[in-house]
Amino acid sequence: MTSAAGRPVRRLTGWVRRNPVQSLAFIVLTAITFGMMWMAVALALRTGLFGFSAGSPPTSQDLPTFATFIGGGLATAATMFGALLTAEHNARERKRLDFETITKSLEAIPPGKQRVAGVLATALLLGQPRIAIRMLEPAWKADEVDNATATWIIDEILGNGTADRPAHSDGESSDRATIKEASIILLQHAKSLTNHASRGDYEFAGHFMDGWEAGRGVPPEAKYFVLQAMADVLLSESPDWWSDGRGLPSFPLDAWLDCARRPDEDSRVKNSAAALFSALYSRFSSGDQDRYEQTHPGARGIVENDLTAFDGKAEHECLVLARKIKTTW
């Protein structure tokens, strides 16, 4: 769970990224305010206002200069403060109008999967990942949302999109509990993410399809569930469905390889990915392996023919799935 002390900091940094102009104006306004305070204190000390003097009193020629400087600074600060408030009000008004427009558009959609997809996407883009994931779980179980929308919602939460992407409105970021819940839901539905009638047609969270882009703040437990979900998607169809005799399937092989190679990844997560990669890699001919090595130099370096090498190093469920891929797939 994210600590209570860390949440305000994450919200503040998220607001700064989404509002760079207002942030700069606030910094300038703060600098001017502190400058005026320093001038006021210096003038008070020099005039002996506090009963002692830090220097010679200002002359009659100095006072108009002080007054002009302080007056001009205060006027500038007041102007910038007003502009900052106006910009913030306008931004909130635009978000309100956008929300009303989206709501009216959703009302015009007939009840069904299209409306559910729109509501889920709206909740997420308005910065409410907890609401989105709570709505997604029962909707997916009731077949009221399609796989493409469901995996996109999960992908956005796993990628911590609401905190990092300017397109999202100011709101909550995806905390560790929400991210973990999203990965569990993905695992629960992994075996139904392929279209059996269309070879090679499947859905999955995009952050994990093109490299191992897990995003900041994704806990290891969630990554284990994602690795298991990949294995379940793979095992839900036959080898011919995935490769059609054309060599090693890029999914989930490439993602497992990228995870196992990632230098900043948790060692147990890396070993879990390496075990799964080794199991799938070993299922193909030496010719297919040679062709894969040509496009992914050094891939053989992480392969262990004996999966017992990962005992105690990889997550147990991932290792069980790796043995299943190697022996029964």
Rank of each mutant, 00 (worst) to 15 (best):
W140K: 08
N195G: 04
F99I: 04
L84W: 07
A231V: 11
D290I: 03
R134T: 07
D62N: 11
T295L: 08
G6L: 15
A182W: 09
M39G: 03
R18I: 01
L234M: 11
D290N: 05
I70D: 02
L24Y: 04
C318T: 09
S278L: 00
F26E: 01
L49H: 09
P20H: 01
F26N: 00
S285Y: 09
S105A: 14
R283L: 05
V16E: 08
G217C: 10
L49V: 10
D240M: 15
H189G: 07
D306Y: 07
F69K: 09
H196L: 07
A108G: 00
L43Y: 15
H168S: 08
L227R: 01
F251P: 01
P219G: 12
I153F: 03
R134P: 00
D240W: 15
I131Q: 13
Y224F: 15
A231R: 07
G6W: 15
W152P: 00
L257Q: 03
L29H: 03
A255W: 01
L84V: 00
T194H: 03
W256C: 01
T151K: 13
T194E: 14
Q188F: 02
A182H: 10
G215E: 11
A275S: 07
A121E: 15
S243M: 09
W15H: 05
E265C: 02
K313A: 11
V41P: 04
L280M: 12
E181T: 06
R10C: 02
P263R: 14
D264K: 08
A279H: 10
L85Q: 14
D143I: 03
A229M: 02
L29D: 01
L321F: 04
S236Q: 04
T122I: 08
G171R: 10
I302N: 03
E221L: 13
D201H: 13
A117M: 06
I185K: 06
Q114T: 05
V303S: 02
A150R: 09
D288W: 06
E172L: 09
A132S: 10
R46G: 04
W212R: 04
F277N: 00
V9S: 08
